[in-house]
Amino acid sequence: MKKFYITQRHKDVGFALLLILPTVLVLLRIFVYPIYQSAVWSFFHYNLMDGSPVQFIGWQNYKDVLTSVAFWLATQRTVYFTVLTVLFELVLGFFSALLLNQHFRGRTFFRAIIIIPWALLTLVNGLLWDWIYQPGFGLFTVLLHGLHILSPQQNPVWLANSSSIMNFVSVADIWKMTPFMTLILLAGMQAIPEELYEAVAIDGAGFWNKLIHVTIPQLMPSILVAIVLRIMGAFRVYDILTVFTGDPQTSITYLTFNYAFRYFYLGKASAMAWISTIFILILIVIYIRVLKKNLDQA
């Protein structure tokens, strides 16, 4: 009996290896190896285009990046964008999910409709809001003129300044990504048993009491996952900015991309990518802890 157990187990291990081998090979070659390579290059002077020799320069790239004004400006704007969008998306997404979790006629229709912004191409979202913010004849200006918030003589160029651009970009991102938040929170809300609400309703709990005593505590794992996923997404903002502005100092990804593929400073770009990656790595700890909890429950 014992012998059978061992052979079956060995068979299982062989089977599992066979199944994960293609994935592991691909990930090692095209994901893990480049991670290692970019770590190595971040310590080298490696400019592809100017013909200068490749040489080891220690921490110089990191020093250059950490002392550059552009990097800190981009970081500051990226963090501002991330906090602003995730906060608004969480609140709006939460209340949208609350509405869509109720029973009412046409629920399927509403649930399908709210997905539209999320499914739109990010680039098209940028194009659309760029059009909305056009001075003179874009929707935003026309509406403000129509509502007499702006007098007809006033015609501001909304996207003129890189700092205030972050607010306008945030609005576009909030419009597009709130549905994603809604979907995750809705999935979580559907798992909350109705009896819990009925139980507190007997005690006379109203809207806010139900929210604070049932919905939010029950939804906490979903909220955490949604926040972490959105922070990771928002921190990488790039697509919309390329439409709104030519200024690479508006986000870390934009700045790194420009160092790498406009000037081909591969060493410095690698160092910058690593610094911003470490920001993200701090989030891994939180993320894995949440995931582990979820996996253990499954």
Binding site: L27, I30, I35, Q37, W41, R236, T253, T256, L281, L291
Partner: peptide, 22 residues
């Protein structure tokens, strides 16, 4: 291994874009 693979999800694509390009 599973957690190793999941952790990769967190890495932004920009961080390995340069070596991938080469």
């Amino acid at each position: 291994m599973l957690f190793g693979i999941l952790a990769m999800q967190i890495l932004p694509s920009i961080s390995i874009l340069v070596p991938l390009y080469i």
